[in-house]
């Protein structure tokens, strides 16, 4: 190690990964490893989806409805991909049914959730698409396809506005 090079991690001697008797790269088997880090911070706009996130403050779920084809999109789309019509916001009941789910024993470090956690596709009442979110207040053994769920809003401070709510079974 050269203490004068702060980014140096390690130096080592590599073998030919192909194990050839005559290594064509024999002159190039000394290796120096550095520790590099990049940090980026974004001033990220949620754009025309922002109203969905703002409505969560009132405990309300919104989706976008296309007046022409009647499709209701969530995540919201200001332009309906079916016919490129500009959509309108519509309020949801927050109730839905369980379409598919998966149990994850370990959470990715960016997830800010307890472990284990359940992820689910929820078919929300009045919505044409499936919505991905966490299921809480229930274990995997009690889950059934088609069971009734509802959105539950928390009071704890969160990082991302999507974490303001999750889904739980309507009755257990």
């Amino acid at each position: 190690m050269d203490p004068k090079v702060k980014l140096e991690l390690e130096r080592l001697r590599a073998d030919d990964p192909l194990g050839r008797s005559e290594d064509p790269f024999a002159d190039f088997r000394e290796v120096l490893l550095l520790g590099l880090e990049h940090r980026f911070r974004y001033r990220h706009s949620l754009g025309k989806s922002s109203r969905f996130f703002l409505a969560l403050e009132e405990g309300v779920l919104l989706a976008t409805r296309c007046e022409r084809c009647g499709r209701v999109w969530l995540p919201p789309r200001p332009v309906c991909p079916n016919d490129l019509q500009v959509t309108r916001w519509t309020e949801l009941s927050g109730k839905g049914t369980l379409e598919s789910w998966t149990l994850c024993p370990r959470a990715p470090h960016y997830a800010r959730t307890g472990e284990p956690y359940l992820l689910a596709y929820v078919a929300l009442e009045g919505v044409s698409t499936l919505f991905l979110h966490q299921l809480r207040g229930v274990g995997p053994d009690a889950l059934q396809h088609g069971m009734e769920l509802h959105a539950v809003f928390g009071n704890e401070p969160v990082d991302h506005p999507l974490e303001r709510f999750w889904f739980e079974p309507l009755e257990l």
Binding site: L46, S49, P75, C104, A107, P108, Y110, A111, R112, T113, Y117, L119, L132, H133, Q134, H160, L162, E163
Partner: peptide, 9 residues
């Protein structure tokens, strides 16, 4: 915006 924040992977 929609899949990552809920712990999606």
């Amino acid at each position: 915006d929609w899949e990552l924040p809920v712990g999606g992977h």
